[in-house]
Structure formats: C-alpha cells, structure tokens
Write a protein that binds this DNA or RNA. Structure first.
Lengths: 139, 139
DNA sequence: CATAACCACTTAGCAACGCTAAGTATTCCC
DNA sequence: GGGAATACTTAGCGTTGCTAAGTGGTTATG
C-alpha cells in the first residue's frame, strides 16, 4: 500500500467513523464537541479560552460558543483571570465533574462493547494508532 | 490501558483529528463530506441514493443534499433507474473523474507529507488501524 | 504618562451538514 | 384495483465550523 493510498483511506475512514459515532448519540446527551471540550477541561484543565481552542483544534469564536453552552448548562465556570483582565479561566464545576464521570461509561459504551471483543493484538494496534493520531493532530 | 480508557481516548482522537484535517482544506476545494461521497462513487459506484447514504453513514435526506451539490457542480449524474422508477442511479461524470484524480494528490498531501516520514512500523500500525476503523464503522 | 499597538475575548452573521417530519411517485402484494 | 411499503425529495431545525468586526485590558514607546 502506497503512502498516497494510506493517506486517502485513513482520511476517509476517520471521517466515516466520526459520522458513525455521531449516530450513536442519545438525544439528551452532550454533543461530540461539547463532550470533547468538557473532557479536556476535566482531565487537563483549567484552561483559558485560547488554550482550550488550540487543544480542540477550532478557532476561539467557535470554542466560545461551545463553552457558552457548557456554562449555560452549569457544567463549566467562566471566571476572569487574576493576573490578566483580558483572559478568562475555564474550570469544570462540581456538576460538570459528576456529569463527566456518570456520562463517560455510557457514552463510550458503544465503542467499548466492540473493543472488548478485539484480540489483544488489535487493542495494541488501536492504542498505538491513538498516539499516531494525536501526533498528526498536533502537527 | 483499560478498554474504557481506550474507547474514550480513541473517540476523542477521532474527533480532534477530523477537526484538524478540516483546517487544512483550501477554500475552493470540495468539503470533506462531498469528497468522501464522490470518492465512494468513484471507487465503488455506481450506487443508488440509499446505498450511498449507507456507505457514508448519513440519512438519505442528508445524502441527498450533498449529492445535489455534486450534481450542480457537474461531478455526478443522477439518472432514473431502468428497472425501478423510484430509484436513482448516481454515477461520476467524466469531469468528476478528472477532478477526483487531480484533487486526490493535493487533497491528501497534508497527511501524506507526514505519513511518509513515519517508520515502516508506524505505517503498518496505521494500515491495520484503518481496517479496525472500517470494521467499527460497519458494525 | 499618554497613546499606539497588541492581545483576549465576544458578538454577529454566513455556510456546511447532520437530523426528523412530511410530501410525492412508484412498486409490491392481496 | 387499492392499500401498504419503498425511494427519493422538500422543508425546516440545531449544531458547529468559519471570518470580520467590536470591546476592553495590557504592553511598549516616545
């Protein structure tokens, strides 16, 4: 398989999988972007808006809108930065933490159900692929 | 790494990579969905609307709108099925074929530039990951 | 220290794309 | 022939990308 074919197939496979995963979202659940942002803040936060937008690979205005939804839902706090009045610091609220913990299992269940049936070798491949994907994302 | 962590990380990596790839799209190029649909028809077509929508993991109305854009751009032909008047058959036009061939290299260039620098082992992982992703997508 | 340049966030408005619900045309089946 | 099922289309909504432009805080400079 050539690099060109690999690139092409990988890009399309990634896109289709994203659409497939979207199909599994329950109606009352957070959207993919919202859940991703909340997860980033939960595991690696707190962040300023710009920092979060760079993590999530969207522009600050796009990030701002997603954050607005999370703040309105009471899952995230937006507080002014102490040392720089221009910045805002985003932290996950207690409700947000609870929501994150409760939702994760259910939310990842569709994938987990399938991954648990994989061979150890397949799981190893997947784990390494995640690292490659992160590397690509941050390059 | 547990299955739960693997699932979670993989889902988020998939979403973020999709956003990262979107950032690389040039203004005059086909969108990700359009390019994916055109590619499916090019390599595996012709298909009816429903068949294509199942391939692309979207609903028929969503697919229809994307196909409309491709038809309007002259890249795809929508013709009535001979054996069943309800169905339409979607085929790639000659312009569409040329466009596909010309665009592919440029479009996949961003990924290919990076993949070409990978070790053979990393490329092997990627190729296997693609198979796993397809399996997940179709399950 | 006044002012310009810069930076961070926000607001406003556009386009792409998912979806569901409902409409039309065709085919299938009794 | 007539009702149910199927395939596509239309209409309309919500989310999520984007760019351009506005607001206010900080930094650098004469």
């Amino acid at each position: 398989m050539t690099v060109a074919e690999l690139s092409h197939d990988f890009r399309l496979a990634n896109g289709r999988l994203a659409r497939r995963l979207r199909q599994e979202k329950a109606d009352n659940e957070l959207s993919g972007s919202q859940f991703s942002a909340l997860g980033t803040l939960f595991f690696y936060g707190p962040f300023t808006l710009r920092e979060l937008s760079e993590h999530e690979k969207v522009t600050p205005p796009s990030m701002n809108r997603t954050v607005n939804a999370l703040v309105q839902a009471g899952l995230v706090n937006r507080t002014a930065s102490a040392d720089d009045g221009r910045k805002v610091v985003l932290t996950v609220t207690e409700i947000g933490r609870t929501m994150m913990r409760d939702t994760r299992k259910r939310r990842d269940a569709w994938l987990a159900q399938r991954i648990v049936k994989f061979t150890p070798e397949q799981r190893r491949v997947l784990a390494e692929a995640i690292e490659i994907m992160k590397e690509l994302t941050d390059s």
